[in-house]
Structures are given as structure tokens and as C-alpha cells.
């Protein structure tokens, strides 16, 4: 207990300063992205268009799936509405 108390006091009083000093040090190492005038590394004449077209194709495919899914979903919702109406009607007759 005698050792724990000073340790707790040290943590509470001095640790925030230490953390702040570390934080400043971390900020000093922050990264800046700078545009290259003449980039040493660029996409090749084939790999660039292929990569870009591939990415666009994936997005379009995803979009098509989402839209098709939404249509199917709407149809299911309408059928569910009809089913609920039927169950409700039958409950009413009973």
C-alpha cells in the first residue's frame, strides 16, 4: 500500500505531461502527401487502364446486383402484404 500510493500519485500528476510530450513527438512525425512534379513511379500503359477498368467493372456489377436485389425485395414485400391480408381476412371470418 505504501508503494502503491506514490505510484498512483505519480501516474495521476506526472503521466499526463509525459503523454503530452509523447503526443508532441508523434505530431512531429506526421506525414505530408506532396504531389510529385515528375513521378518516378506511375501506372504502366497496360496495367493502369486494366486496373481502372477492372475497378469500374466491379462497381457496376455491385450496383447491378443491388438494383436487382431491390426489385426482388419489393416483389417479396408485396407478396408478404397480400399474405398478411389473407391471414387477417381469415382471422376475421373465424
Amino acid at each position: 500500500m505504501k508503494r502503491l500510493l506514490p505510484a498512483l500519485l505519480f501516474t495521476a500528476l506526472l503521466a499526463p505531461d509525459a503523454a503530452r510530450a509523447q503526443s508532441d513527438a508523434a505530431d512531429d512525425r506526421s506525414t505530408a502527401f506532396v504531389a510529385a512534379e515528375a513521378p518516378s513511379e506511375t501506372f504502366g500503359p497496360v496495367e493502369g487502364p486494366v486496373l481502372f477498368a477492372g475497378a469500374c467493372a466491379v462497381v457496376c456489377l455491385g450496383l447491378a446486383f443491388l438494383l436487382a436485389g431491390a426489385r426482388v425485395h419489393s416483389r417479396c414485400s408485396r407478396r408478404l402484404d397480400a399474405a398478411f391480408a389473407r391471414v387477417g381476412e381469415e382471422d376475421g371470418h373465424a
Binding site: D27, S30, F33
Partner: peptide, 22 residues
């Protein structure tokens, strides 16, 4: 910001940052 690490901090109040075209 709090602990030392390798992960870069690009968008901060101090330092770092993006080129205007980015």
C-alpha cells in the same frame, strides 16, 4: 496522438496534410 506508433497522421491540426490537388 497519445502513444508512439508507426501509423501516419496525415490530416491533423499540426503538420502533415494533403497537397491541394489531392
Amino acid at each position: 496522438q497519445k502513444w508512439r506508433g508507426q501509423h501516419p497522421t496525415v490530416i491533423t491540426g499540426k503538420g502533415g496534410g494533403l497537397a491541394p490537388e489531392m
